[in-house]
Design a protein around this nucleic acid. Structure first.
Lengths: 128, 128
DNA sequence: CGCTAAATGCAAGTAGTTTGCAATTACAAA
DNA sequence: TTTGTAATTGCAAACTACTTGCATTTAGCG
């Protein structure tokens, strides 16, 4: 918590009650969350405020964008813990995928990779 | 072209002029296309029709969904040519990424993988 | 404690897609 | 080859997820 509050402070942003609530909610729920999910976790914050806070967190790299298989944007706090996800299409469970291949892609394409999306969908062992 | 028309026929769909136009446009432009892109490539087709045709093609696995780094859905024909993409954030160029790790993810997570998203963004050699 | 710029709530706007329904068309049957 | 009919299409409106403008409120410096 302190770590993230410092990022806000160091960038000249105020430590408001709403920002602390959103941060706390996302720290306690470390999985891909939509803006609506975040709003449900933080009673009494307007949706536009949730939107602006989460977008600020994203600019400050406090949260990261996650794309799953619908048209919503998800966000998740992943400090020092870069990972991807696999979603069960039957029960909806989301598991971590600790694999990344940006270095390989960098070598293969000669691009400097700055950003990537990598998510999986399937059937989990329990649902098979 | 014939190959795809047969898929439509075999599934009981009519071979209409509009469907042929959309198919032809997407065969000639094998890169991620938004519905608006497809509409621009096919003069005189209503957007709702483009929407329904591309969605039908998607259900029949004629096209595949591609997610890039904005909020639009892209579609691309990739028969026998599964690949991913890397987008240059400077010039917008899109290159292929011929790499896939669903087998590795399958082993790692014990899920049966049915679907995945994997896209990259960076700076291309020419823009460095 | 008061001042001021930043943050927030409310309501309206926007982009991209999705749907309902009447008009049109592909194609099987005559 | 023409006809009947269900599938397809166009149009307009609805919908979802996000985005913005502006008036009100609040954090935090002095």
């Amino acid at each position: 918590m302190e770590f993230y509050l410092n990022i806000l402070k160091q960038n000249g942003y105020k430590l408001t009650g709403k920002r602390k609530l959103v941060l706390e909610a996302m720290l306690k729920n470390r999985r891909p969350l939509t803006l609506s999910d975040v709003q449900k976790l933080c009673v009494n914050i307007d949706f536009a405020t949730i939107y602006r806070i989460v977008n600020l967190f994203n600019e400050l790299d406090i949260v990261h964008e996650v794309k799953l298989f619908d048209k919503q944007q998800y966000y998740e706090i992943m400090k020092d813990d870069h990972h991807h996800h696999v979603v069960c299409q039957s029960c909806g469970k989301i598991d971590r995928v600790d694999l990344c291949i940006t270095q390989k892609v960098s070598k293969l394409t000669s691009y400097t990779i700055t950003n990537h999306i990598m998510e999986f969908k399937g059937i989990c062992p329990a649902c098979k």
